[in-house]
Structure formats: structure tokens, C-alpha cells
């Protein structure tokens, strides 16, 4: 497990995505969020709820 990322540059990423606003498949990358306040939330899996 990595140590804290706080104070460090956020990792670059690119991955498949589902845009629930449009109902379309797409891709997202860190470049889409450059220059913005961004919140990234990880969760264990679809069809689970806590």
C-alpha cells in the first residue's frame, strides 16, 4: 500500500468510463480535470452499498 499522496502531485491516469449524465460510454483522463478543483472517490464495487 502506497503512502499518503497529500502534498504530492496527483497521479496521471486514463481509463474507460460510463457517464451517468448522458448514459454513454467514454474515457476519462487526468487531463480532463487539469486546472480544476477535483474530487476523486474510489469505492469497492457496483451493487454494493455503504
Amino acid at each position: 500500500m502506497a503512502t499518503s499522496l497529500v502534498t504530492r502531485e496527483a497521479p496521471a491516469f486514463s481509463m474507460d468510463a460510463y457517464d451517468a449524465a448522458t448514459g454513454r460510454y467514454t474515457t476519462v483522463s487526468s487531463e480532463d480535470y487539469a486546472g480544476h478543483w477535483t474530487a476523486i472517490c474510489f469505492y469497492p464495487g457496483d451493487f454494493t452499498f455503504v
Binding site: 481509463m15 474507460d16 468510463a17 460510463y18 460510454y25 476519462v28 480532463d32 480535470y33 480544476h36 478543483w37 477535483t38 474530487a39 476523486i40 472517490c41 474510489f42 469505492y43 469497492p44 464495487g45 457496483d46
Partner: peptide
């Protein structure tokens, strides 16, 4: 604030 949620599931 732009929001992105991520899991290890497929699209």
C-alpha cells in the same frame, strides 16, 4: 469541483 467516482468494475 469536478467529481469522478471510480471502482474496479467495467463500464
Amino acid at each position: 469541483v469536478k467529481l469522478l467516482v471510480v471502482s474496479c468494475d467495467t463500464k
